[in-house]
Design a protein around this nucleic acid. Structure first.
Lengths: 213, 213
DNA sequence: GTGCAGCTACCCCATTTGGGGGATATTTCA
DNA sequence: TGAAATATCCCCCAAATGGGGTAGCTGCAC
């Protein structure tokens, strides 16, 4: 059996360095290289044609989800394992939709990571136990949380919400997005209604709490 | 010269594993072990008496700052280097006050980290370049703006401001503090004027940023 | 090809907000 | 004690906000 070529992606180079050092000791693994941002990851995926990529999700600029989508679009054969820093339910679904074959948390230990890499390389899928549970919960029991509350908003509404939360008036927003201020008011009303909020201040707090700005 | 015993602390075990693998290759370094939370870090610091600790700041439960304070209280000789995930100005000062000898970002590369560890072990201090700049900015711009800006507010105004930032209307605030709503409006106007803000949403953002609520 | 979600724009109407003031207490402190 | 700061309440008025709607238009799914 030939070696498994691995490409590590994380915005912290000390992390990619560490992972390379760690995985280089594993028999059958070959480190193809590392990337410290999404664009570099996309580029190196093309050039180096790794078998497996370890992909950080949260990175400045383009994130791991977008990178995964682009890479899988052009290289169906590259298996991608998402490395999640926090146990964030939000990203699991998106990452799997983007084409990731695995989703593990960074508190995984080395031996298990090695197993996951081998498993994914063999064509299987892998989800961390706790991640799998969260995913199931996400689909079953929790339709009324803040995260899903955000999902009830349309794209346009999220856009308007961000502007409102920055303190812009309806008129200012209208000018920014080339709409009638009446339309902006409509959107604002719908946002208030959907989120069960009372006024713009609560919108601002909601946006900050949910990191929408 | 004897070896430098290093203890790595981070809540992601894959990170501590990686760091250990990375640093074990460096001549003169000896990995004392790793800890995945603050309490374990404190305990292992006592037991293993490392020369240098690499300390993650953000961890579930007790954070790296608290851990640093406790460790330095009992072991003045242990040098602690803060490993910051984001370039968060907030923590720099606290971490240095807690007794850290260095503050580096996780996007440091291996060679530089090795240098920093040696430097700190030799009794020197080290701050990442960008961190140092932020620290200077922090001491220059912040206290002369936001902090002193808050001080221009009277007690009553701060009280009203907090209520505004929670999304209450003038009338609701008036009822809460047994004032005429006209008075609340007066205070609100003074707050807007003193802080140079435009509307309630900006008041809310100001309050959150300055931790007034 | 019907239906539905989303985007757009508008109606009415009461209330709130924000920008100008000003007046009178009450407290603080030099 | 006497000025300064703070707190309280009020005036006018335009604009913005929030709570109800309605309604055309587009694109996508069933």
């Amino acid at each position: 059996m030939s070696t498994i070529k691995i490409l590590v992606v994380d915005d912290h180079s000390i992390f990619t360095d560490g992972m390379q050092a760690l995985l280089a000791t594993v028999e059958g693994f070959e480190i193809a290289g590392a990337a410290n941002n999404a664009d570099e990851a996309i580029q190196k995926a093309m050039m180096l044609k790794p078998d497996v990529m370890l992909m950080d999700i949260q990175m400045p600029g383009k994130n791991g989800i977008e990178a995964t989508i682009e890479i899988k679009r052009n290289n169906q054969d590259i298996k991608i394992i998402a490395l999640s820093s926090a146990n964030e339910t939000l990203y699991i679904k998106k990452m799997l939709e983007a084409g990731a074959s695995g989703y593990v948390l960074k508190n995984i230990d080395k031996d298990e990571l090695v197993l996951v890499i081998k498993k994914v390389h063999a064509g299987e899928k892998h989800l961390d136990g706790s991640v799998a549970n969260q995913l199931i919960e996400h689909f079953n029991t929790k339709p009324t949380e803040a995260a899903t509350l955000v999902d009830t908003l349309t794209k346009r509404e999220k856009e308007i919400l961000a502007f409102i939360a920055q303190g812009l008036t309806d008129k200012e927003i209208a000018d920014k997005v080339f709409l009638s201020s009446l339309t902006v008011i409509s959107h604002r009303k719908n946002i208030l209604s959907k989120l069960g909020l009372k006024n713009k201040v609560e919108i601002a707090r909601f946006a900050i709490e949910n990191k929408l700005i």
